[in-house]
């Protein structure tokens, strides 16, 4: 068993503890994706200038979401780590070097991040049409919104959250 499989094992047994955390992050990723989808939606891009306001609003909201999320993750990961000091001590006494313990925990949090990212993208894509339709209704526009998955939006979400997850 190497660091990777130990991390996988820990992740599986700790999923219950992390459920709420993962749920919050999934929703955040989904919301962020929907705003990105709006930004990159070809139909929206073609419509009139009214939507420029909506677009900039969407951008501001997504940035705010990101900032809140970064602080949320920062706080909760330090909280989780504090809860698990005893566990870290046991690993240290089992003769695992500090570097390796760090690696195990890093890999585990990457698993959590990937789960949230995948789940978030899935929900985001599922609800993106609903979101855009609601927006069209609100802005009294008469556009039919086709269901699209703009790859540029997906990549942007993945890059942004990839960086955040790695940084924390």
């Amino acid at each position: 068993m190497n660091a990777f499989s130990l991390a996988l094992k820990l992740f599986r047994s700790n999923v219950k503890t992390y459920t709420f955390y993962i749920a919050v992050m999934t929703v955040a990723v989904a919301v962020y994706y929907d705003f990105m989808a709006l930004k990159h939606n070809p139909e929206v891009l073609q419509t009139r200038e009214v939507l420029l306001y909506a677009k900039s609003a969407a951008q501001i909201t997504s940035v705010v979401t990101l900032i809140v999320l970064v602080f949320f993750m920062w706080y909760s990961s330090s909280f989780f780590l504090k809860q698990r000091t005893k566990e870290i001590g046991i690993y240290a006494l089992a003769g695992i070097s500090n570097a390796k313990i760090g690696l195990v925990f890093a890999v585990e949090s990457i698993f959590i991040g990937l789960t949230a990212l995948a789940g978030g993208l899935l929900f985001g894509i599922l609800f993106s049409k609903l979101f855009l339709m609601a927006l069209a209704k609100c802005t009294l526009l008469d556009v039919t919104v086709p269901f699209t998955v703009p790859t540029s939006a997906v990549t942007e979400v993945m890059i942004t959250f990839g960086i955040i997850f790695l940084a924390l």
Binding site: A92, L93, A94, G95, I96, S97, N98
Partner: peptide, 15 residues
Amino acid sequence: KNGDLAKLRRNKIGF
């Protein structure tokens, strides 16, 4: 050093 201590704990010591 730390690394050697970890090795020693792993091979020679039980808690």
